[in-house]
Computed example of a mutant assay.
Amino acid sequence: MLALDTSAFRDAMSRLGAAVNIVTTGTRTDPVGFTASAVCSVTDTPPTLLVCLKRDSRARPAFVEGGPLCVNVLSSAQQALSNHFASPNSMEERFTIGHWTTLATGAPVLEEAVATFDCCISQIVEVGTHSVMFGIVEALRINQNVGGLVYFNRAYHHLPHAPE
Rank of each mutant, 00 (worst) to 15 (best):
G128C: 02
P108M: 00
N153W: 00
V109W: 00
C70H: 02
A38M: 08
E112R: 12
A59L: 04
V23N: 00
S14M: 06
E65N: 08
P160I: 12
Y156A: 02
E112K: 09
Q123C: 09
A18V: 01
A12G: 10
D118W: 04
L53T: 13
P163I: 09
Q78I: 13
C119W: 11
A86G: 14
C120K: 09
C70K: 04
G128H: 11
K54H: 15
S90Q: 03
G147V: 06
I97R: 13
G17P: 02
D11P: 03
T24Q: 13
E65G: 15
H157C: 07
L16W: 15
V23F: 00
D44M: 09
T24G: 06
E92F: 11
V51C: 10
G33P: 05
N153M: 05
F63V: 14
C52H: 03
A113I: 07
C52I: 01
T24E: 14
A62R: 15
S87Q: 04
A12P: 08
H158R: 15
I121G: 09
H84P: 07
T6W: 03
V73F: 09
R15V: 00
C52L: 10
T35R: 10
S90F: 13
Y156W: 08
C70S: 01
M91A: 11
Q78W: 06
T43P: 04
N72I: 10
D44A: 08
F34N: 11
A104V: 08
T102G: 01
V23T: 01
V137R: 05
P163M: 12
M13I: 07
L140A: 09
A113L: 10
T6D: 10
L110K: 05
H130N: 10
P46E: 13
P31G: 05
S82I: 02
I22E: 01
E111F: 07
R58I: 12
S122L: 04
V42R: 02
G135E: 09
C40H: 08
R58S: 14
A59W: 14
Q123I: 07
E164Q: 12
S7P: 02
R58Y: 13
G66M: 04
H99S: 15
T25W: 12
T24V: 01
F9M: 13
C119F: 11
T24F: 08
G106S: 03
R55K: 13
G26L: 14
T25M: 05
T45G: 04
H84Q: 05
V127G: 03
P31N: 05
D5L: 10
N145R: 12
S87K: 04
S131N: 14
I136K: 06
L74W: 00
V20H: 03
A115C: 08
V132G: 09
Q78C: 05
D56C: 03
P46M: 11
V114R: 11
V64L: 04
F95L: 08
H158A: 15
R58D: 08
A18T: 11
G106H: 10
H84F: 06
P160L: 14
Q79P: 02
D11Q: 14
L49H: 07
Q78S: 12
S14T: 09
E92R: 07
